[in-house]
Design a protein around this nucleic acid. Structure first.
Length: 798
DNA sequence: GCAGTGTGTCATAGT
DNA sequence: ACACTATGACACACT
């Protein structure tokens, strides 16, 4: 279960990250409930509740607090921690302050830093809907706010809980900034934060996006159609007021470096507005017959824009988008569009980084915007000659969906010059796709049926298939991880492979279970045979003793020709050749010790006679003269048996060897034996016992070798498993980096200053401040700001 | 004849 | 002290 937990956690994280990057919010539990316990239970443990705080418990747990420094789990911890940290950011960032404020900071010709602040109500708060999941309970304000919003229309997708202030614009004309941001470290993290806070909610069963305006905090259920010009003005006022103090916990968190000084500067300097999405819509409307005016928020746009231009807001010229809550169908249409865009985007994901940026400049290629990596939520804006200054936040307005069904419909592939540049830095676009557009395969895969039920005009099955394949592949990867976990981290293929390696490596791959019977058992089994052997023990024992003259005499007469010691066959039953045949490590041993075979073996006569002459030393003496009258049984006897026969020992060697010492002493006492006989008997007993001991010793040695081999095998499997896990981690990280890189480039490609000029990535960088704002500022300023906190910390320490 | 392996045996230490 | 066991070392048999 531990492995399962680890793998599932990591797999879930990876998968979630992947989906979040492509703008999909998934409740994985929905798809695995039937087979597996809830993911939260797997991740958090059986006792974990379905609460947000439990996620922090997970965090604590997986932060490694409970891992021993020397534990091997530490490897898992380090590898998974990175992913978990990122997921934590989802939790931390998304809920409390879903608004994103982007500040365009640039240096004017005089060297004065100015900024264009575009704040829009198109915030992208992800409503958890069910109230569960990963809402950050640590932020009561944010939760309360969201709760109030969600109460009105928790799943409508338009619960205006937060706001997103994006100073960047999403123009159609983009330049290739792909080479400007190779450093993914900080920017990547910032962008990931932006995305995740907007798109991902592990705990929610569905994704709902809130398009909120600033004033929605007090009027969460404001209907867009009801919004009047006064509403817009009022909204703008609130927008201005809230420019620096954003909703939720971000209030008061803006320090002078990010949220305070810069916006003030911006307001004082005056910021040029970009063409709003509403403007875009209106322009598009002139070209495309959209739905009725009142039904989409775009109708309000002109008014808002006017108010925005008239207002003294820092976002002067940036229209405040009314908090629209259009019908679900409209939103779904919009999301369908986005889904399609994402599909296409994924199809060309591999070439996203460069192609997107290169295609953008002025080109109206419909696919250009789709090739910008998997972060289609950002890359949906394609160059259109009409709207060049669509603000990012504006682009995320759901109201557009009803207006542009034709743009993103299957005809999308056809070259179009009228594609709206809607897209936005806000990932709400892509998120919306999943929240309500069920027609696409994407949503069909991951969203509950109710959400998918509404519609879909623009779904394109042809496009969905590739995405399906990709998602299936991703799912299969996770499943394979699960399988791996089930197998304690080792796949069958690897296991078989290693087994083959093991088999080839070792000639001693003996299964200990098939080892010969233990000597003790063999001894018991041969007790019956011992009685039979006693029948010829009288025939003349062959004395072999260094201190016995009698043995010397007897050896010559008794030992004729290397008699087989067939008695051994009983005592050392595990030496039975038939048993060795089952032992792989013994197969190569060609020894034919036929003295272990029964007397009936036809091989004994010839075989035992030949080596007799070769014997040297003590055995040579024994083989010097072998009486020809000795029968087959004598030839099969052991030396000690022959000696015993020669010495006329009245009992068998088996008894001599195996009798308990007391019985053995009694046996000796019963018979009147000479000293020579007693010495021989004691030698026989000593040698016999030592022989068994030697056999046991060798057997133990062999078992030890086998166990060591098993240990080596286990270690090899562990190694293979760890290598596979490492490869998985590396792959995940690589994928994330690619996506982040694409996202960063995508964002930059859509950023425009007040003059509609792109921000060169080499000079500007996106910075994600602690209050949730996204700043576009010169790199040198970014670096300075990055240094300031460090200094402050040092000062505090002093 | 040599190498590898199995087996028996001895010496020795330990139980 | 004795019996027994375990094990290294050796010699030998066998392939």
């Amino acid at each position: 279960m531990l492995y399962l937990k680890k793998y599932f956690t990591e797999g879930l994280i990876q998968f979630t990250i992947l989906l979040s990057l492509i703008g999909v919010r998934v409740d994985v539990d929905t798809y695995l409930n039937s087979q597996l316990p809830p993911l939260r239970e797997i991740i958090l443990g059986p006792s974990s509740a379905y609460t947000q705080t439990q996620f922090h418990n997970l965090r604590n747990t997986l932060d490694g607090y409970g891992i021993h420094p020397k534990s091997v789990d530490l490897d898992y911890f380090f590898a998974s921690r990175r992913l978990l940290n990122q997921v934590r950011q989802l939790d931390r960032l998304r809920v409390p302050s879903t608004e994103v404020s982007a500040w365009l900071v640039h240096r004017d010709p005089e060297g004065v830093v100015s900024a264009s602040v575009q704040s829009g109500p198109s915030s992208i708060a992800l409503d958890n809907g069910n109230g569960g999941g990963l809402d950050d309970v640590s932020n009561p304000e944010g939760s309360a706010m969201r709760g109030g919003v969600g109460g009105g229309a928790p799943e409508s997708g338009y619960s205006p809980s937060t706001e997103e202030t994006l100073g960047a614009v999403a123009p159609q004309d983009t330049q290739d900034h792909g080479n400007g941001n190779d450093d993914l470290t900080k920017e990547d993290i910032d962008l990931i934060d932006i995305l995740w806070r907007q798109d991902v909610d592990l705990g929610a069963g569905r994704e709902v996006f809130n398009y909120s305006s600033r004033h929605k905090e007090s009027e969460p259920e404001k209907q867009p159609l009801e919004e009047s010009k006064e509403d817009a003005e009022r909204e703008e006022e609130g927008w201005r007021n809230g420019l620096n103090l954003q909703a939720g916990q971000t209030h008061g968190q803006v320090d002078g470096e990010t949220g305070e000084s810069i916006p003030e500067q911006l307001s004082s300097l005056g910021v040029q507005s970009s063409l709003s999405l509403q403007e875009c819509l209106r322009l598009l409307e002139a070209t495309f017959p959209f739905g009725e005016e009142p039904e989409f928020p775009g109708a309000v746009a002109p008014e808002l824009r006017e108010s925005g231009e008239e207002g003294p807001s820092t976002s002067r010229g940036l229209p405040l988008l009314p908090q629209a809550e259009p019908s679900l169908d409209l939103e779904q249409q919009w999301q369908d569009i986005m889904a399609i865009m994402e599909l296409q985007d994924m199809e060309v994901n591999s070439t996203a980084d460069s192609s997107f940026l290169s295609d953008h400049p002025g080109s109206s290629s419909p696919t250009s915007g789709l090739e910008s990596g998997s972060l289609a939520n950002f890359g949906l804006s394609s160059p259109t000659p009409i709207n060049q200054d669509v603000s990012l936040h504006q682009a995320s307005l759901p109201s557009c969906s009803q207006d542009f069904p034709a743009f993103f419909s299957p005809e999308l592939d056809a070259p179009q010059s009228h594609r709206p540049a809607l897209l936005s830095l806000s990932s709400s676009n892509s998120s919306n796709v999943n929240s309500t557009f069920g027609s696409t395969n994407l949503t069909g895969l991951f969203l509950p049926a109710p959400l998918n039920s509404t519609s879909n005009i623009s779904s394109t099955p042809a496009l969905a298939d590739p995405l399906n394949s990709l998602l299936e592949e991703a799912m299969l990867d996770e499943i394979s991880l699960l399988d791996l976990a089930m197998e304690e981290g080792f796949s069958q293929a690897q296991a078989s492979q290693l087994e083959d390696e093991l088999d080839s490596d070792s000639g001693l791959s003996l299964d200990s279970s098939r080892s010969p019977a233990s000597p003790s058992s063999s001894e018991t089994s041969c007790s019956s045979a011992a009685s039979s052997s006693a029948t010829f023990s009288e025939e003349g024992a062959v004395g072999y003793s260094t201190d016995s003259e009698v043995t010397g005499e007897l050896e010559e007469g008794a030992v004729g020709g290397h008699q087989p010691e067939h008695n051994k066959f009983c005592r050392m039953s595990y030496q039975d050749p038939s048993q060795f045949q089952h032992l792989p490590q013994m197969e190569h041993v060609g020894h034919n010790h036929t003295y272990n075979l029964p007397p009936s073996s036809p091989l004994h006569p010839e075989h035992t006679l030949l080596p007799a002459a070769k014997r040297s030393g003590r055995d040579g003496k024994m083989t010097a003269a072998s009486p020809p009258q000795h029968d087959l049984m004598d030839k099969q006897s052991s030396r000690d048996e022959r000696r015993a026969r020669a010495m006329k020992i009245p009992f068998s060697n088996e008894r001599i060897i195996n009798l308990p010492v007391e019985e053995f002493n009694e046996l000796l006492a019963k018979h009147r034996l000479s000293e020579a006989q007693l010495a021989l008997i004691r030698d026989i007993r000593r040698r016999g016992k030592n022989k068994m001991a030697a056999q046991n010793c060798r057997k133990r040695k062999l078992d030890t070798i086998l166990s060591l081999e098993e240990g080596v095998d286990s270690l090899r499997r562990d190694k293979a498993r760890l290598l596979k896990e490492k490869a998985e981690f590396v792959r995940s990280i690589r994928q994330m980096k690619q996506k982040v890189h694409s996202l960063y480039q995508e964002v930059f490609s859509q950023l425009r200053d007040e003059d509609g000029r792109p921000y060169p990535p080499s000079e500007y960088a996106l910075q994600y401040s602690s209050d949730g704002s996204v700043l576009v500022m010169p790199r040198h300023l970014a670096t300075e700001q990055a240094r300031k906190p460090e200094k402050k910390q040092k000062d505090k320490k002093k």
